[in-house]
Write a protein that binds this DNA or RNA. Structure first.
Lengths: 350, 350
DNA sequence: CAACTTTTGGCAACCGCTTGCCATTTGTGT
DNA sequence: ACACAAATGGCAAGCGGTTGCCAAAAGTTG
């Protein structure tokens, strides 16, 4: 302290300043600004906790040194990592890319790092990641989680998370309005005169798959349609061939398919077999992924603001992490859906 | 300081151990195993540095406590973060999906966390990320970097990185064999009788765009073809319409397009305008992204093992980070390419 | 101007783990 | 059994921040 006065003149001591060797630490900034590290820390974290004049001095010093606080160190002492992990079952699937894009955007806006994890459709990997990363992420977003209700409940007990397309009573959830979507699709098919419909199932552990089938069966039955179900199939285009063949065998004239990937695969197979879409068979996909608009024929599918869903998920998670004043955090967000009618559906063959 | 001793005993206050409240630290493990934390640290990091018996004891303790070391703390003291940042210009672009998938796989295999960053085609954001994350990532993978040579050189000086599809003398690079690919494509077009060809350009700051054009011009000229060039266009399907219209105006009978996204967009526009592909115009894309095989017509395109490129990039980066015995780290990897001929190319119209 | 309240900034103790250095043990050769 | 080398484990000093607590400084009030 006594030397502060001197220091003003000192300046030259260090000779040429700003050696670009090692990244500057908070200490360097403190030194340059002539204050203690704690003050620097405060100036940056809670600006009104320090005198405006010193704050400015510190800010200038920081700017000059091009100081960037180490998130590592910060995390260690503050207990927060400023990172959020996003777990998806399959990075390969374009559907999740929309989600990822959404989360990425929103997280970046909040200055939070995104840790992307591919769980490869496996609940073990999911649990493992959840466990391994509990110290390195402040929260998790589980897209289409494959965990059981019990597992989910347990996990959500110990770490903040929000699920996407996976209902849960224990954690905030954002999901797309599947029931309404399926009903819209059936309505559409019914109006085209279809009586025999088939649901092409995806992964049994997928909650949304279960929901879709449930609603499909209920509503189709209510309409007096003949309902079939085939599957489960891995939700990839490559499974489409098998699915298409099976679908044809059921005698159904229209299929609602678990997702677009599978649907597009079916389209390819049907074309190869010379079965015309939609003349001989109508196909409805789900998710409206990249490609659904330019495949052949363009796919009628269930659209939903997926990217926005990602954003919402992040918002909900962040709200959970920083409990703001008053307002209880929202526990459920349902994204609207609508049927995008393109060219893979048409009048039932007679 | 004097009280430290007291504190040592205080610990027990909590009575029953292993409360599942807070995640266990290295201290808990040490205590359970009856050793010092340093020993635990070693047992886990360099197993042969401790006695096998104690190591086992420690491992058991760790297992019982379900101990996972804090990567934060580890990073702080060791100076390594065990994370690698992957910067892509546009998360939206399926081309990068493949890269990301590749890097993700390889990184996971190495136990390294992937930090995904979307730089939105902006060199500023790229620099910014590079700067902000220098403390939180051990290295960087720059996919299709938009940085200038000078910037790249400077950055690579201070942090380990490898570039993908962006030549650089200052950093290891993995790229796809563009020249050969373009030549293959021109050969293909020539054999179909095309004489007037057009290159549809992508982002001017894209190195691979520049390369493609360069080789295109050289080789096409050498073949005595009439060469056109249009663009630049943003590499998205939505830019395809403008590109298609411009391409038609050039009078060319075949186009080689910067990437598949743009090419698919052109396909859509051409179809809308009633211009038949490939009868009236042939289109060759590049990258063979998801969707290129099922668009209408399926796109003839330049394929390359993109996912593998991502893997290789990671390997090169990791090699750079852990300079192993002897073998100098590879500075350049060139991924092979081949022309995947589908249905968007055909004989030149007469 | 004294008495008292606010501001402001420094001190020092962590956060959880790594690592250089040193004291013990244990093992080896004769 | 003895001298000496190798193996093993603990101590303590950080890594780069954050934060509770306290003292000095500045501002208020009558």
């Amino acid at each position: 302290m006594a030397e502060t006065g001197t220091q003003g003149t000192t300046r030259g001591t260090s000779g040429t300043a700003a050696h670009r060797d090692r990244p500057p630490t908070i200490r360097d900034v403190a030194e340059l600004a002539g204050v203690a590290t704690s003050t620097v820390s405060r100036a940056l974290a809670r600006p009104d906790r320090v005198n405006p004049r010193t704050r400015i001095r510190i800010e200038e010093a920081a700017a000059e040194l091009n100081y960037v606080p180490s998130s590592q160190a910060r995390g260690l002492s503050s207990g927060r990592t400023n990172a959020v992990a996003v777990l998806v079952p399959d990075i390969t699937n374009p559907f999740y890319f929309d989600i990822i894009r959404g989360t990425q955007h929103q997280l970046k806006a909040a200055g939070v790092t995104q840790l992307l994890v591919d769980t490869e459709e496996s609940s073990e990997m999911e649990l493992d990641a959840l466990h391994k990363m509990r110290k390195s992420a402040d929260g998790f977003i589980l897209a289409a989680s494959r965990l059981t209700d019990a597992q989910l409940a347990e996990v959500s007990q110990s770490q903040p998370l929000v699920t996407f397309n996976r209902a849960s009573t224990s954690a905030p959830t954002v999901m797309i309005d599947t029931p309404s979507a399926i009903i819209q699709a059936l309505e559409h098919l019914a109006s085209l005169g279809h009586h025999k419909v088939c649901y092409v199932a995806g992964p049994p552990t997928s909650w949304s798959n279960q929901m879709r089938w449930k609603v499909f069966e209920e509503d189709a039955t209510k309409r007096g349609m003949e309902v079939h179900r085939i599957g489960p199939y891995t939700p990839k285009t490559t499974s489409g061939a098998a699915a298409a063949d099976a679908a044809v065998r059921t005698g159904a004239t229209a299929c609602i398919v678990f997702n677009d990937l599978l649907a597009i695969g079916m389209l390819q197979r049907l074309k190869a077999r010379g079965i015309r879409v939609p003349e001989d068979m109508s196909i409805v996909g789900s998710d409206d992924i990249f490609g659904a608009d330019f495949c052949n024929p363009p796919l009628t599918t269930i659209s939903s603001p997926i990217e926005q869903a990602g954003r919402v998920a992040v918002s909900m998670l962040l709200a959970q992490l920083n409990p703001l004043s008053g307002s209880a955090t929202r526990q459920l967000a349902v994204m609207p859906t609508h049927l995008t009618i393109r060219e893979s559906t048409g009048p039932a063959p007679r």
